[in-house]
C-alpha cells in the first residue's frame, strides 16, 4: 500500500511536447511510472518517449483510461490545464508549474471541489511511491521503499530530508511535495489522514515553512485524528518579518506565521520538531524504537 499513487496509476502528461514536459516524461518513464498518454493541442498522432500524444485531455482519457495527470504548462495557462483535466475525467491532478496567479487557483480549486477531483500543487515537485511510481520532477535516486510518509511545502529541502532518511535506512511509503503557494490543492490535513489510513505508513515527516497557519491547523488535526508518530521541521526559523522568501507562501506578516509559533503549536500536541535537518532521521528512529 501507499497513498494516492502506485504502480497501477495511469498517468497523462499535459504539455508533454514542451522542453520540461518531454525531459521529465523521459525520467518518469525510466523510473517505471505508467505514463499512458500526453496532451499537446495540435500535436495528436505524435509520440514522445513512445508515449502517444492527443489534442485534448478528454481524447486521451477516452483512448487510454488515464486517471491521473501531471501538468508542465507555462503559469499563465496552467489553471486552464487543471480545469481541462478535471472536466476530462482525471481524478488526481499534479501541477508542477511555478508562478500561477492566485486568483486563477481560487477559481480552479473551487471547480475541482465540485467535481470531486484531487489536486497536488501548483508550484510543487510532485509525488513518489518509491519503487512504483514517480509523478513530477523528483530526483529518484535518493528514495527508498519503506514505511515513512513525508509531506513537504518545499522542493529541494525535501530532497535533503529524504536523502537523510535513506542514509539512515528509513525508506518511504509515499512522499508528497504540496507546493509553497498561498492557494494549493491537498494540504497537510488531507495527507495526514491518508497516511493515518495507509497500513504501510508507520511514521510521518511533516516539513513546513514560515507563513500562513497551515502548520498550526495541522497540529490541531494531529491531536484529534492522527495516532501514528509525526515529526516536523519548520524552515525559516531565522527569516526576517515581511519578506517573501521565494515561495509566495513563505512570508511572515505582522507577527503571525512565525517559525516559533509553529514549533510551539507542534510541541504542544506532542509532535517533536527538529532544529536541524539531520535531527529528522534521528527523531523518526526514536519514534519507531529503531
Amino acid at each position: 500500500m501507499s497513498i494516492l499513487i502506485n504502480k497501477n496509476t495511469k498517468v497523462l502528461v499535459q504539455g508533454i511536447t514542451g522542453r520540461d514536459g518531454s525531459f521529465h516524461t523521459g525520467k518518469m518513464v525510466d523510473y517505471g511510472t505508467n505514463i499512458v498518454a500526453g496532451v499537446s493541442p495540435g500535436k495528436a498522432g505524435q509520440s514522445v518517449h513512445n508515449v502517444p500524444v492527443f489534442n485534448t485531455v478528454a481524447d486521451a482519457v477516452a483512448a487510454t483510461g488515464a486517471d491521473t495527470s501531471v501538468i508542465f504548462i507555462p503559469a499563465p495557462y496552467a489553471a486552464d490545464a487543471i480545469l481541462e483535466a478535471a472536466e476530462g475525467g482525471i481524478k488526481l491532478v499534479v501541477c508542477i508549474s511555478e508562478g500561477v496567479p492566485t486568483l486563477d487557483m481560487v477559481k480552479a480549486t473551487a471547480y475541482l471541489k465540485k467535481k470531486g477531483v484531487q489536486l497536488i500543487g501548483a508550484n510543487c515537485p510532485g509525488l513518489i511511491t518509491p519503487g512504483e511510481s514517480m509523478i513530477g520532477i523528483l530526483p529518484v535516486d535518493i528514495f527508498k521503499k519503506g514505511n515513512v510518509g513525508l509531506i513537504s511545502r518545499s522542493g529541494t529541502l525535501t530532497y535533503l530530508m529524504v536523502s537523510l532518511l535513506s542514509q539512515y535506512d528509513l525508506g518511504q511509503s509515499t512522499c508528497v511535495g504540496i507546493g509553497g503557494d498561498p492557494v494549493a490543492g491537498l494540504y497537510f490535513q488531507e495527507l495526514l489522514q491518508l497516511y493515518q489510513d495507509d497500513p504501510q505508513t508507520e511514521a510521518i515527516v511533516l516539513i513546513g515553512e514560515i507563513g500562513g497557519d497551515a502548520e498550526e491547523r495541522a497540529a490541531q488535526y494531529i491531536k484529534k485524528h492522527v495516532t501514528k508518530p509525526v515529526v516536523a521541521f519548520i524552515a525559516g526559523q531565522t527569516a526576517p518579518a515581511g519578506k517573501r522568501m521565494g515561495h509566495a507562501g513563505a512570508i511572515i506578516s505582522s507577527g503571525s506565521g512565525t517559525a516559533a509559533e509553529k514549533i510551539a503549536a507542534f510541541e504542544a500536541v506532542g509532535v517533536p520538531v527538529a532544529r536541524l535537518p539531520i535531527d529528522i532521521p534521528l527523531l523518526i528512529k526514536k519514534a519507531l524504537n529503531k
Partner: peptide, 17 residues
Amino acid sequence: MVNGAGLAMATMDVIKH
C-alpha cells in the same frame, strides 16, 4: 547561494544555529 526557497531558508537556519 542555494537552490530552492525552503532549502535556502533551512540553510540560513543552520548557519544561525
